[in-house]
Amino acid sequence: MSKLCSGRVVIVTGAARGIGRAHALAFAAEGGHVVVNDYGVGLDGSGASSGPADDVVAEIEAAGGSAVANTDDVASWDGAARLVETAVQTFGRLDVLVNNAGFLRDRMLVTMAEEEWDAVVRVHLKGHFATVHHAAAHWRAAAKSGTLPDARVINTSSGAGLLGSVGQGNYSAAKAGIVGLTLVASAELARYGVTVNAIAPAARTRMTEQTFASTMAAPDGGFDAMAPENVSPLVVWLGSAESRDVTGRVFEVDGGRICLTEGWRPGPTATKSARWSPAELTPVVKGLMAQANPPLPVYGTS
């Protein structure tokens, strides 16, 4: 029986642990050739090691799959280029890019250092842009040579990017930026046969062990709703040929739940045929707010 991603070449960033590892294993199980990218750093971005990526490659190969390790820093311009080159040189092409890599440096805004802001925005937001840029250049060249790709990008946002999260201003801003990047990339890359979507997952990983501390242990014999493996089936499907008509979308996914989110769109409106004056806007704005749906709470405020 043909597997969903048979022969497709897939890059997964941050693939040595947690959700990224689950993605890599799931793509390999569905017949994909997987580039297991991981810089091998700690939760705060410190240190580097090739061991974690090598371990996942060994796991895939032991199960009969096909994989290669890559330890480049995805937020490095040259590193992102080498990552794409690894896929092309090893497997002959690139079909799917899954951007997953990231780390945390949580702090309230009033105490957050500039370096803590820059480091998180760099790895999450620039790390997505750099890999998308180099993958897109590969696909554009293929399209111009007469071979239209059937390619996919799956980016990783977060509920923190959709709603905000107290103590995570850097992370929330980067993850919100990834949604914007996803929308632009989906519009710009469609001509090259590329779809671009994003997920906002919730699962038990190194990054969320404090958030989900009360659900760290799987229930005896029951469904482990916080297992990172629950996120991967949707990502594998988005990476397959079956998803070619889905682009520019953001999905929340956790446990057995998949939610297609609906982002910013015009709501209640007030108009007049002249410029508003500040003095008259109190009842106007209050009237608009009375007609609108209340915003969902920021994580950590309730």
Rank of each mutant, 00 (worst) to 15 (best):
V121Y: 05
V121E: 03
R122S: 03
V123S: 08
H124Y: 06
K126D: 00
F129H: 08
F129V: 07
A130N: 13
T131E: 01
H134E: 13
H134C: 09
A136V: 11
A136K: 03
H138K: 05
R140Y: 07
R140E: 13
A141R: 08
A143L: 12
K144M: 11
S145K: 10
G146V: 15
T147W: 10
L148N: 06
D150N: 15
A151Y: 09
A151D: 08
R152F: 13
R152T: 07
V153Q: 13
I154Q: 04
N155G: 05
T156F: 03
S157R: 14
S158Y: 07
G159L: 15
G161T: 04
G161Q: 15
G161A: 13
G161P: 00
G161L: 04
L162P: 05
L162K: 15
G164C: 11
S165E: 14
G167D: 03
G169H: 03
N170V: 09
S172D: 10
K175Q: 11
G177K: 08
G177A: 01
V179C: 06
L183R: 07
L183H: 06
S186T: 11
A187L: 15
A190S: 13
Y192C: 04
Y192L: 02
G193Q: 05
G193R: 10
V194W: 00
T195S: 15
N197M: 05
A198F: 13
I199N: 07
I199S: 08
A200F: 11
P201N: 05
A202G: 05
A202F: 07
A203I: 06
A203P: 10
R204P: 00
R206Y: 02
E209C: 02
E209F: 05
Q210E: 12
F212H: 09
F212N: 13
S214A: 14
S214M: 13
T215E: 10
T215S: 08
D224V: 10
D224N: 14
M226G: 11
N230G: 11
N230W: 08
N230H: 13
V231P: 03
V231T: 01
P233W: 09
P233R: 10
L234S: 05
V235N: 02
V235A: 01
V235M: 07
V236E: 00
W237C: 12
W237H: 01
L238K: 09
L238P: 00
G239P: 05
S240V: 00
S240C: 09
S240I: 02
S243F: 06
R244C: 03
V246G: 01
T247L: 14
R249D: 00
V250H: 06
V250Y: 10
V250T: 11
V250S: 01
V253N: 01
V253R: 06
D254A: 14
G255N: 00
G255L: 03
G255R: 04
G256Q: 13
R257H: 09
I258S: 05
C259R: 12
C259M: 14
T261K: 15
G263I: 11
R265P: 00
P266T: 13
G267N: 15
G267E: 11
